[in-house]
Structures are given as C-alpha cells and as structure tokens.
Amino acid sequence: MKKRLFFAVNISVALLLLFGGCSKKTTKVDEQPQVVEETPPPVEEKEPEKKAPPKEETKSGIELSFKTVYFDFDQYNIRSNERDVITHNASVLEAYPNVKVLIVGNCDERGTIEYNLALGDKRANTVKEYLQNYGINGNRISTLSYGEEEPVDPGHNEGAWAKNRRAEFKIVQK
C-alpha cells in the first residue's frame, strides 16, 4: 500500500513538474537540475566539527549560526528586507557542508489553526526553495510547520505577531 501511495504522489509531482507551465513554479523547476548536480558536498571542510568548542568557525570565519526569516501577515513570499537573511543562512550552509537544517514555519495567532499549519508549511518551504535556488542541496534541508502553536512572544499585538510570523532554522546534523 505504501508503495502505491508513493507511486501516486510521485506521479502527481511529476505531472506538476511537467505541466506547471504558466505558474511561478517554472523558474524554480528550471533551476532544480543544477541543484542536484551539486549533491556531493565538498570534503575539505570537515574540520569545524572537531575543533572549536566555543565558537565553530570555518576558515572563512563564518559562524555556524542561522538567522530567523520574518513574514508579513498571511504571506509566505520573501520580503525584500529578508533576502539578506536567507542569503546569510545560505552562506553558512555553504561554509558547513555537512550541516543539515530543519526549517520550521510559524504563524501569528490570528487565523485558524488548520490554515496556519498550511501557511507555516508554505513559509518553511518558500525559504527552502530560496536556498535551493541559491545552490544549497535540498537534501540538507527538511521542513516542518507548527502553525500558530509555537509563538516566541505570547503577546496579542502587532509587535508580538511580527516576531511570531517566522521561519526558524534548527540544526539537525553538524
């Protein structure tokens, strides 16, 4: 049963890729093959894992630390002022080729629990796509949505909401 299920979904995905024609997807689809070719990670930069207990830094001096990406209400497109944040995170991933991350999408408390799960999922995956377009292998990035379940600020005002609409990076493998 599981096999069939995989098959069915793979077919659907394949169809989407084939017929995604006029949608925004096209650009992303075009870029995907390049991403795949980069799969074997460079081997020379294994060191940071062993050394540097206080601050893990590569030769290039980039710290192993990710920044959170923030969103507008009910939106999952990347704001222009957040592009630098993702680019920074992409460069960290470049500098630490063995690192794998989980991107968790979150929402503010407004809106329904169910829709916010979908919105958080979309936010996490929009960031993932952005990183893939930058050249990071998608195999290193998993995604998850907690919807409105995990606010960083429990307040009920725009200040709190703005902090809660976010995609957070969590390191799952160093």
Binding site: M1, R4, L5, A8, V9, S12, L15, L16, F19, G20, S23, K24, K25, Y76, T112, E114, Y115, L117, A118, L119, K122
Partner: peptide, 18 residues
C-alpha cells in the same frame, strides 16, 4: 479510509487546504 488509493485533486502552486 485505510490510507490507500491517494488521489491529488488540486494542482495550484498556492495553499489549498481545509
């Protein structure tokens, strides 16, 4: 109801839910 025979109904790149 047993989790078999999945059929995808929506194809839009937007959120489709609920």
């Amino acid at each position: 109801p047993d989790g078999g025979n999945w059929l995808r109904l929506t194809q839009s790149p937007a959120i489709d839910s609920s």
